[in-house]
Design a protein around this nucleic acid. Structure first.
Lengths: 257, 257
DNA sequence: GTACTCACACGTACGCTGTACGCACCAGCG
DNA sequence: CGCTGGTGCGTACAGCGTACGTGTGAGTAC
């Protein structure tokens, strides 16, 4: 995947014996061949691939350029700065949502499907939720997603403000839920390399004594019960569905039908 | 506030004429006087102050050390790394919550008070929500907060798992809501310096044409209505209360009484 | 064919970050 | 007095985002 964009070294004009490189004491400037021109989409795709494979911490202008086989600064022809690239990543990821709406179940089933789709994408790209937090993104895919959500509660006689509130409620819940879910997952599995040896040491074992200390202090009885009885971790899907249903129930109290 | 920790320059042994500094061509090593010893709490407080005053982006080991009047690397005696410091900041901020629970309104009023307290803290420290996202923090104050939330739904005959689910639902909503609220606030006001000139240019004016383009495309009718009719922005407090009530209603469908 | 122009790729360099390492110093103790 | 362990902190380094300027190739006008 690397160096596929055809930047090869040396051999410019009149280099018949390969000595010119040595004489000039430094590598020739890379031959400027006809590059398959860079595009914003390519860059975004590369950033997405790097983030998925090595975590969002590995998303570096240099790393992405290397992934594309181009110079670091070439990226800046197509992207204002790194922050814009991150926004593009968010929008691209949101574009992967595959909601199955329009079912005969009415607005509840539609909102449920949208929530599930959102969660699925955020779980597939664990970096998405943190990136969205505190970054107002309004890319086309995000707008499309908003439009879908709004249309799920359209035609119920609600004002736009009310529709937006419903959307915001559900949205806030899904974002918050998945964030917590990802946090929990992070200290169950260690980082991303899943060495079962290093896995143990990362959190459960490191935090174990501290947790025991908190429990033994007796000042947090309910927290302690939570820690002790949550030994066999509950199914996150089930938890999501239950909590999602509560939110939908809550919306139902303010919606007709 | 700077240089108060008493590290003064020069004047070590036998420096009667002030020339030794010049002769040695570089500043004397700072006099090692009896320092009021650094503590984790001091460091955390300094980091909090810097984050509040200049944004989380200004939270730098060097910047904090400067704020404390100590050397950068001194911090590492008390803090494993920057990430641990951020965790300490989160825990300290959560410790500022001032919930008024135990009111006669039952679990609904208690949960409402907890949610309001949480939101208040996150609004007071705009960096808190982003920092919490994707970072499992289990400091004493956080545990205390969890304990409070759990105790609000204690004694209703719920299993621990059910209690945790209720807590998680509310928590997810509050976190998600405040994050969106902060994002919106971010592109209404520009950054933090509130120059009314620069303020206009930052988002509303920069994104204006783009928004118009989206609206004019006609592909997002509901989104367009949202943009157009939300001219006079709604009261976020009111929105929070309404949405919070929906979530509480939803929980009520699964809780007795 | 030649000369000019322009878009774009990219090398270099700078200021900043987190932090590993090791030295300098001080309190307490023999 | 000498030793020792804890701690402050200066130096150094790798890596970051990115401003700036330079060089190349394609396209166009003549």
């Amino acid at each position: 995947m690397r160096r596929t964009r055809g930047v090869q070294e040396g051999t410019s004009v009149a280099d018949t014996d390969g000595l010119s490189d040595v004489i000039w004491m430094r590598p020739q400037p890379a031959r400027r061949t006809v590059q398959p021109p860079l595009s914003r989409d390519q860059i975004t795709a590369a950033a997405l691939a790097v983030a998925d494979a090595e975590g969002v911490g590995a998303v570096t202008m240099r790393r992405i350029a290397q992934h594309l086989g181009c110079g670091t600064m070439s990226l800046y022809r197509h992207v204002r700065n790194k922050d814009e690239l991150l926004e593009l990543m968010v929008d691209a990821a949101v574009g992967e949502e595959e909601p199955r709406t329009g079912s005969p179940g009415g607005w509840q089933e539609d909102l449920r499907a949208l929530a599930r789709a959102k969660r699925a994408v955020m779980l597939r790209h664990p970096w998405l939720a943190p990136l969205m937090a505190g970054r107002p993104v309004l890319g086309p895919h995000v707008v499309e997603s908003i439009e879908r959500s709004l249309s799920a509660v359209d035609g119920l006689g609600l004002s736009v403000d009310e529709m937006v509130r419903c959307f915001n409620t559900l949205n806030a819940f899904v974002n918050g839920f998945v964030q917590t879910e990802l946090e929990e997952r992070k200290w169950r599995r260690p980082v991303s390399g899943d060495d079962s040896d290093a896995a143990r040491d990362t959190w459960q074992h490191r935090t174990g004594p501290y947790l025991e200390h908190l429990v033994d202090s007796g000042r947090y009885p309910l927290f302690s019960r939570m820690v002790n009885e949550a030994e066999s971790y509950p199914d996150p899907d089930e938890a999501f569905e239950w909590q999602l249903q509560r939110v939908l129930d809550g919306l139902a109290t303010a919606l007709p039908e």
